[in-house]
Design a protein around this nucleic acid. Structure first.
Lengths: 158, 158
DNA sequence: AGCAGTTCCTTGCGCGAGCAAGTAAGCTGG
DNA sequence: CCAGCTTACTTGCTCGCGCAAGGAACTGCT
């Protein structure tokens, strides 16, 4: 914004302004791009891919709904519906948690694992092309640390 | 994903993997955080703020629907509805384009400008806290260049 | 034991977005 | 000049998501 009245906080420098604009663009466009790549070439949405991925990495390939939602940065209700879709496709099964009768475990089925493996090359290619290739000459660890601060600065109000 | 069968493309190194995971998190969470900040403290959605911002910076504070949609990274139909909301709030007026009878110009009203100015400090604060503060020790120009490549590598299929 | 409070998940609802089809206006070649 | 194509935008439909409310199961206090 080109401020008409001067605000209280110090306004952004030109460099900062450019970064913020670009990052705003990235954060709106990148999810769409990745989702589009996956749907186009692997017939799966980004949310579903992410869900299957986290399940595949969990012990016994199963997770509580709770943990799954947190891992995928989805609300609990969003995860309920995502798992319902995956379950109707046979990629996930749901079993009651044996240590807590309120809880459910989402379990990756063999079909789900196969689906994930089928989509993996697409995701990898998309990831390389869209992300890592563009940061080849960066200190990746430092960048990752900074981005980590972005996504959860303690003041995460969601 | 922890690959079970080895894919064709070279898999990610540990550093790359970490970056990709973190960036995935950022790209899903950051829009929600910024939107939440604005709604909470300024009573406006991120989409609406962005729309008003771009209008405020345009010559005569007006833009064709087309250009506005592109600037805000929204589909044309999404922008139609966004402007409809803003119009019903009195923040935007729509006039026919005088050089092309098919076109519409979205015009920022004085109320809309006031609304934008009122929300600006919130947006600035959110921006500083969520973004620039976390990249204080970075070469912002280089980072911006890299992120620019992320959001539009020519192969933007949307 | 039993009741209050908490936790885990699901359901009802509304919103915001994209896609595809529709409409209206401009353009172009015969 | 008008028939057919193109362009600019809107509308109908559907989907995915978050929020708030609900229900079921666990826990703790008495």
């Amino acid at each position: 914004m080109r401020p008409v009245t001067e605000p209280a906080a110090p306004p952004l420098s030109a460099d900062e302004e450019a970064l913020v604009r670009t990052l705003a663009r990235v954060m709106t466009v990148l999810p769409k791009l990745m989702d589009h790549d996956l749907r186009q070439d692997a017939g799966i949405s980004l949310t579903e891919y992410t869900t299957l991925m986290h399940l595949s990495e969990a012990p016994d390939r199963q997770l509580r709904m709770n943990e799954l939602a947190t891992a995928c940065d989805l609300s609990l209700s969003g995860m309920t519906r995502a798992v319902a879709r995956l379950e109707s496709d046979g990629f996930v099964r749901r079993i009651r948690c044996d240590t807590d009768g309120r809880g459910w475990e989402a379990v990756l089925t063999p079909e789900g694992l196969a689906r994930l493996e089928a989509a993996y090359p697409t995701h990898l290619r998309s990831t390389r092309q869209r992300i890592t290739d563009n940061f080849a000459d960066f200190d990746l660890a430092a960048l990752t640390r900074a981005l980590d601060r972005v996504s959860c600065p303690g003041t995460t109000p969601i």
